[in-house]
């Protein structure tokens, strides 16, 4: 149900461009449904996940 994938941005530049990755780390949720820049606290990431998933 949950998949967490680290993506090396310089090796997959097309994907990074597709999701407008401007800085690292940047977490893209469900193929661009949401996005968080930086290493944020757990609660901030969850808040963005909730927003992205409408839950």
């Amino acid at each position: 149900m949950i998949r967490a994938e680290g993506v090396e941005a310089t090796e997959f530049p097309d994907l990074a461009n597709q999701f407008n990755v401007r800085g690292v780390p940047q977490t893209v949720i469900n193929a661009g449904g949401g996005s968080v820049v930086g290493a944020v606290p757990e609660q901030n990431l969850i808040a963005e996940i909730k927003r992205a998933m409408n839950q």
Partner: peptide
């Protein structure tokens, strides 16, 4: 290592969740 409330939330996900963390070496 996640907190209890986060575990509880994730346990009840209705749709798949894919997180892609873009990094550089």
């Amino acid at each position: 290592g996640l907190s209890e409330p986060v575990r509880e939330f994730l346990k009840h996900l209705e749709k798949p969740l894919h997180l892609q963390v873009f990094v550089t070496p």
